[in-house]
Design a binder for these strands. Structure first.
Lengths: 129, 129
DNA sequence: ATAAACTCCGTACCAAGGTACGGAGTCAAG
DNA sequence: CTTGACTCCGTACCTTGGTACGGAGTTTAT
């Protein structure tokens, strides 16, 4: 029995709508519509969606996944470059979050030392002097 | 001379449209429109936008900023709770990014050890076996 | 007094990654 | 053979934090 779109969805634990969305984005190819009946999806499409999902778990956007898919048979170096850029972006984001973490921790520490529970040092720090 | 919206924008280095956007979101109050002429913006509004911008720098969303603004004269504990939640969210996000960082580093290491430059181990790891 | 610059207001649009809806066609089970 | 489930397709909607546009009114500079 042929694989309809909802079978694919079930196999991969994604929504039918998501698959159609990937089709619209040209991340996967829409199988031809048979004279009568429903479209059926080959193994390649299932594999491709799998690929997309794994790449997303690595933090790649769909646009980047699209590039990765186009590099499937390309030399390592091009893929490597994408991965390096992503790594840098991840590290930059972490740096920013560390800044937030430190700022929040400092403010919370001020709260704990605060005698005057009626007025919060966090609010104070946000108000222009 | 009264402060028009573009004066506020210039003072705070934000767009006029952003100020209007905050008005629509009820983060700031729109000053009444005089019988003739333009609205003019009091110091309080400028201070409030300043507050918004600083809170955003701490990672708070506009919805959260809205809550913070409503807590301006509330006991420390409520503000503290918001900040603690934010800190937790920041730390959770960092944890996720560290996972990405490690995964990407591991893949890039495989690339560097890779003899067969024609096929990339990153692509390999994304493809279903 | 007229043109340039600014305000006001409603509405539409942007990214990203989907989700939801509605109507028509199709398929499978009882 | 009918009912319920599924597909197909286009389109609209969601979130977040704004940005852009267009026309009418107003103010300022020359």
């Amino acid at each position: 029995m042929k694989r309809t779109i909802s079978r694919v969805a079930k196999e991969l634990n994604v929504n039918v709508e998501t698959i159609r969305f990937y089709e619209r984005k040209s991340l996967i190819e829409q199988p031809p519509k048979p004279k009568d009946g429903y479209r059926h999806y080959p193994d390649e499409t299932v594999d491709r969606i799998h690929f997309i999902k794994r790449a997303q778990e690595l933090g790649f956007t769909l646009d980047e996944v699209s590039r990765l898919l186009s590099l499937e048979d390309s030399p390592c170096s091009e893929v490597q470059e994408l991965a390096e850029n992503k790594l840098e972006a991840v590290q930059a984001k972490m740096k920013d979050l560390r800044r937030l973490e430190n700022a929040l921790k400092a403010l919370l520490a001020q709260c704990n030392e605060n005698e005057n529970q009626a007025h919060c040092p966090i609010i104070n720090s946000l108000q222009p002097k």
